[in-house]
Structures are given as C-alpha cells and as structure tokens.
Simulated scan of single mutants.
Amino acid sequence: MTVPVADWTDRMLELEVGPVAHGGHCVGRVGDDGEPDPHGRVVFVRHALPGERVRAVVTEDGGGAFCRADAVAVLRASADRVTAPCEWARPGGCGGCDFQHADPAAQRALKTAVLREQLSRVAGVDGDVVVEELPGGALGWRTRVRLAVDAAGTAGLRAHRSHDVCPVADCLLAPAGTLPPVLGRAHRPGSEIEVTVDDVGVARVDVAVVAHAAGRAWELSPGVFWQVHPALADTLAGVVASWARAPEGGVAWDLYGGVGVLASVLAGQVGPSGTVMVVESSRDAVDDGRRALPDLGQVRFRAARVEREIATLAPDPDVVVTDPPRAGLGRATVRALAARGPERVVHVACDPASLARDLGLFDEHGYRLGGLRAFDAFPMTHHMEAVALLERT
C-alpha cells in the first residue's frame, strides 16, 4: 500500500544536521522528537552546520524525496558557528550568502568537503584537494554586484529562491562605502543594475571600467564578464602559466576566453611564432580583448559559440584552456575537444558538480587528472573556483 506524502510546508521540524551538501545547505533528518517520514525523505536545511540540532521551518515541499527548510533555532550549536555579520543573512533574508553563520576557515572546510564528495561520487577521483584562501578576507571583496529593483524603484538584493527584493542599505561583501550611494537612489522599477567597483574604489553603474590582471590593463565594456574577486584573475593566470606549458611556436586555444586574460599568458609561452586562438561568444568581450592586446599578434579572437567552433579551428592545438559557464563543458564538447588531441587541457570550473562530471568525461577519452586546485573566490557563499589539469595518456 502506498503511503501518501504529507505536505510539510510551513511545518516546524526538529532536525539532526548531517553533512554539508552542494548548494549551500546541509542534509538534515527528522530527530527523535519529530514526526517520522514514511518515505524516508531528507531535509535540505539552510543556516545550519553539520553536527547541530536545530528547529527548522519547511519552506518548500514538492512531495518528492526531499524538502527544503530554514533553521530558525539552534538547540545544539557547532563550535564553528559565529554570529552572522549581516542582518540580512537569516531565514527569509537575502539569498546571496549561505555561510555567514560559519567561521571563514570552517566555510572553506565545508566547500572542501563538497568538492571532495562530488569528485569521488561522480568522477571516481579521491584526493586531498583543499579549497585555498585568497587574500583580502571574507568581507569587502566583491567588485561586481547585480542589484534588482522592485516595483517602487528601490534597489536591493533578491531573497533566497525568490524574485522578492530585499531593500538592503549595504552589502558587506562589497568594498565598504561603495554601494550605499547607489542603493539610496531611485531606479527604473523592475530593472536590474550592474555595479562595478573600479581599481580606485569607486562604484560605477553600467559604464566601462578598467581592471588589471596578468600585468595588463583591461578596459571592460558594461556587462562584459570579469571575475568578481579581485585576486582571482591573477591567481588563475598564475595556475595557467604553471600548468599549460604551451611549446614555443605551438598552438594554444583559449575557449570561453572572455577578454583574453588567460590568452595573454599563453601568448608569452608560444611566443611570436606561435598561435593563440580565443573563442568567446560575447562580441563586446572580443572587442575589449582586441583593444587590450594589440601588441600580441599571435593572439586571434573569434566571436562565436565554442560548441560550434571546435571542429573548425585549425590547426590542432598543443594545449587548450577552457573556462565554461557554470553548467560546464558536457559530453558533446568534451568528445569534440578530445578528438582534436591536445596534450594538456587546463579546465577552469566554478561548480564542483559540473567539474566532477567533466573530469569523468575526459577520463573516458583518455585524459587523466594531473593536478587540481580550488580557491575560495566567493567567501560567505557556497561557491568556489577550481582548476584541473588534464593530461593525455
């Protein structure tokens, strides 16, 4: 006989909190004093930490194998728990931060646990990779913020899993003092605003800014992608410089290459007699890259979708750098790339699940993991950045 699934939405549960899971929450199960679930569902609970006992309110229950909840009372606290510095980092608050209630070192440990679990379960890769700290601390690091504007023209940040706009007075992740002037102004109702903090600490709204990385200045058109953590672009450039090892006079590809920061590193390796092909779908980014690298004639840009261009690029590459969107490369792109036979692929990923899947796909095509590093480029959130070196066997 099938037991009907009860809708737990808005129900208060007492939970034993288990391990952290991908997505900024932990896995909870109903405690001894709570109501057992005949379906054995788990509860993905935010604002909790492993080992805690909490009371949580169910916020979503679709009737499937899990439901979502927010911890509203801590009955047994973890030693890693701290007071969140922002009043909006709470149940029903801003959705931008997942881990403000954890010590920064504990945040990195949580991300490390998620990364290792995904790599082991999805890709069969077991190792001692650790999410590394970047300079600058846990607050004041975010140089790009996308604000939403409500129906009254008030800018703010969206609530967790919602289109509701939280009317924040500031965001502690942005450099101190940069956002309040923007948040204090009226804006077009229903719009979105991209705020970029330039190198001298001034907030710019939807205008070109200048950023620096890999020893160069990059003038960025509004909306063109740039890493939000000020140390990440140079960090990634350093890893590529160490791992790519493109031969002098050789061919390197920079796929999903943006304005060409990593291509500029590859250009130094292949030299004037080599070739670096950058493929990027954003024409604005390609235009910005061409303006930034007039002295590197070996770098060529193509404004196109990577998935459509891999088969047409010539000649075959010695080394490939990939930095795809969060969804990763996927089966078809990995297959097409492996068919071109590069000796090494330096793969940048911002999602551990996508990374693990892509590593498994590369393994199917004879590419073995030669190195892996991960960075806490998004403190207070569950996000991270990782770089993997794949070597052809």
Rank of each mutant, 00 (worst) to 15 (best):
residue 287 D to I: 14
residue 308 R to I: 01
residue 301 F to P: 03
residue 288 D to P: 08
residue 326 R to I: 09
residue 322 T to F: 00
residue 327 A to D: 13
residue 280 E to Y: 00
residue 272 P to W: 09
residue 326 R to P: 06
residue 286 V to D: 01
residue 269 Q to M: 12
residue 253 W to G: 00
residue 276 V to W: 04
residue 294 P to V: 14
residue 304 A to E: 01
residue 336 A to Q: 15
residue 273 S to A: 14
residue 325 P to G: 04
residue 271 G to P: 08
residue 295 D to N: 11
residue 299 V to G: 04
residue 254 D to E: 15
residue 337 L to C: 07
residue 303 A to W: 01
residue 327 A to R: 15
residue 254 D to K: 04
residue 269 Q to T: 11
residue 246 A to S: 13
residue 296 L to H: 13
residue 262 L to H: 04
residue 336 A to P: 06
residue 274 G to Y: 03
residue 305 R to V: 11
residue 308 R to E: 09
residue 325 P to R: 01
residue 294 P to E: 14
residue 251 V to C: 09
residue 285 A to R: 02
residue 292 A to N: 08
residue 263 A to S: 14
residue 337 L to W: 00
residue 247 P to W: 12
residue 323 D to Y: 03
residue 298 Q to L: 09
residue 307 E to H: 10
residue 302 R to C: 13
residue 281 S to E: 12
residue 332 A to F: 06
residue 327 A to C: 11
residue 272 P to F: 10
residue 331 R to M: 10
residue 327 A to G: 13
residue 268 G to C: 11
residue 317 P to L: 11
residue 254 D to Q: 08
residue 340 R to W: 07
residue 251 V to A: 05
residue 334 V to D: 03
residue 268 G to W: 07
residue 270 V to F: 06
residue 252 A to F: 06
residue 268 G to A: 11
residue 332 A to M: 12
residue 303 A to D: 04
residue 253 W to C: 02
residue 316 D to Q: 14
residue 304 A to L: 03
residue 252 A to G: 14
residue 306 V to M: 01
residue 267 A to E: 05
residue 291 R to S: 10
residue 263 A to N: 07
residue 342 P to A: 10
residue 302 R to G: 06
residue 306 V to C: 01
residue 300 R to E: 11
residue 331 R to E: 15
residue 301 F to R: 00
residue 258 G to Q: 02
residue 298 Q to Y: 08
residue 279 V to L: 06
residue 334 V to G: 00
residue 314 A to C: 11
residue 313 L to A: 05
residue 273 S to W: 08
residue 305 R to P: 04
residue 314 A to W: 15
residue 320 V to S: 03
residue 278 V to F: 01
residue 307 E to W: 05
residue 246 A to V: 06
residue 339 A to V: 12
residue 334 V to H: 02
residue 327 A to T: 13
residue 317 P to I: 08
residue 276 V to R: 03
residue 270 V to T: 09
residue 328 G to L: 05
residue 250 G to Q: 04
residue 248 E to S: 14
residue 259 V to D: 02
residue 255 L to M: 07
residue 315 P to V: 07
residue 287 D to R: 15
residue 289 G to S: 12
residue 292 A to W: 04
residue 291 R to V: 14
residue 329 L to I: 10
residue 323 D to I: 03
residue 314 A to M: 12
residue 250 G to M: 08
residue 322 T to I: 05
residue 283 R to I: 02
residue 250 G to I: 06
residue 331 R to I: 07
residue 327 A to L: 10
residue 333 T to Q: 10
residue 298 Q to C: 15
residue 285 A to M: 07
residue 268 G to L: 09
residue 301 F to M: 06
residue 329 L to H: 05
residue 282 S to L: 08
residue 330 G to P: 05
residue 283 R to V: 06
residue 278 V to I: 08
residue 265 V to H: 02
residue 280 E to L: 00
residue 286 V to P: 02
residue 254 D to S: 07
residue 284 D to S: 14
residue 281 S to G: 11
residue 322 T to W: 01
residue 270 V to W: 00
residue 263 A to R: 00
residue 263 A to I: 05
residue 250 G to N: 07
residue 270 V to E: 01
residue 323 D to E: 10
residue 331 R to G: 14
residue 309 E to S: 15
residue 310 I to G: 00
residue 274 G to V: 05
residue 322 T to M: 04
residue 263 A to D: 01
